[in-house]
Computed example of a mutant assay.
Amino acid sequence: MASLQEIASQIRRDIVRMVHGVASGHPGGSLGCTDYLTALYFKVMEHNPSFDMNATNEDVFFLSNGHVSPLFYSTLARSGYFDIKELSTFRKLNSRLQGHPATHEHLPGVRMASGSLGQGMSNAIGAALAKKLNGDTHLVFSLHGDGELDEGQNWEAAMFAAHHKVDNLISTIDWNGQQIDGPTAKVMNLGNLDKKFESFGWEVLILEKGNDVDAVVAMLEKAKTLTGKGKPIVILMKTEMGYGVDFMQGSHEWHGIAPNDEQLARALAQLPETLGDY
């Protein structure tokens, strides 16, 4: 069986190939969050690739920063939700794998449309409350961008979750300090995120090594031990945009552009093929 590191390497290969194939997409955040989704889908989360939209008696995941769709699609395909060959249709006409995931495409694993940023936490809270009402003790996970927190709906949702003690929710913020227009500190300074979430009534965990898949697993497992205690949980996960490809790392410039042929070759040379390309 492949290691988590090997799976993450293959997913990163998928990401750069998918974006290159249509000269469109968002490689930066996708590469930065690869270790998180690898840890979640291949180690931590109890989920069923046969896919039931009601998610009864299983954990459930909501992707809020939907522009990292190449990462999400690769993770779903590699964990058995659909054939990996379908990755070759990314962002093409009539494909189920559109630039932002959408439920009307009926793609297994996709539970919400996430073209508009800022809505994922509200959706995740609704699902978490539904599980409580149904007596389902499984958990809800969600992923958000730090730039996405500029949307005020996130903070309304954060207040709601704490007030209603939505303690079966583990939300993770991709804290890479970058968004499409530049560093978050310049576009809209987020201030002290951990103190913000604490003041909103959340249990706050800080993950310094968000690009270390083992560290991500350990933090998610720790977060699970804190559920059921009256507070929603947030993990502030420090990552580097473009992680794994040296010329993409740490720059907002790779938020939403595709590599050319020469850049693709350079990227793939840094990412071992471990599970077989699609």
Rank of each mutant, 00 (worst) to 15 (best):
L271R: 03
S88V: 02
L205G: 05
D214Q: 14
D59M: 09
G32Q: 04
F247D: 12
M159E: 04
T38Y: 02
K196P: 01
T225V: 10
T34W: 00
E58F: 08
N123T: 13
K131T: 05
E105G: 02
N168G: 14
F247Q: 13
R12D: 00
K224Q: 15
V19R: 11
S50T: 12
N154L: 02
G182E: 12
N176G: 04
Y243G: 02
R12H: 05
A124H: 00
L97N: 06
M45H: 02
D214W: 03
T274F: 00
F160N: 08
M1H: 10
R96I: 01
T227L: 02
F42W: 06
R12N: 03
G177D: 06
G135W: 05
D150R: 10
Q179H: 09
D150V: 00
D150M: 12
V217L: 10
D59W: 05
H20C: 05
G230S: 08
L236H: 08
R91M: 06
I170L: 12
C33R: 05
R266T: 05
E6T: 09
P70H: 10
K195V: 14
W175K: 03
E58W: 03
A269Q: 08
I257C: 04
A23H: 15
T184W: 07
Q270G: 04
D14A: 03
N54M: 09
R78Q: 13
S79A: 14
G244V: 03
V187L: 14
E253S: 11
D174M: 07
P108Y: 01
S69Y: 01
W175V: 11
F141D: 00
K43V: 07
E198G: 01
G244Y: 09
S116C: 14
V110G: 08
G145K: 11
E262V: 11
P70S: 11
M1K: 02
S3Q: 13
K92I: 04
N94H: 15
A157S: 15
A185K: 15
A162F: 08
L97Q: 08
S251E: 10
G152I: 02
D146I: 11
N192S: 10
H47N: 14
L139V: 07
T239V: 07
V245T: 08
T239A: 13
N211P: 06
H163W: 06
A77K: 09
Q153C: 06
T38L: 10
G244H: 06
M112W: 07
S64D: 09
S79H: 14
L4E: 07
S79D: 12
T89S: 15
R78S: 10
N154E: 05
A2N: 13
I11H: 10
S199R: 10
N57S: 14
D194H: 13
G126P: 04
D35V: 13
S199V: 06
T34M: 03
D83F: 00
V60M: 09
A128V: 07
E262Y: 06
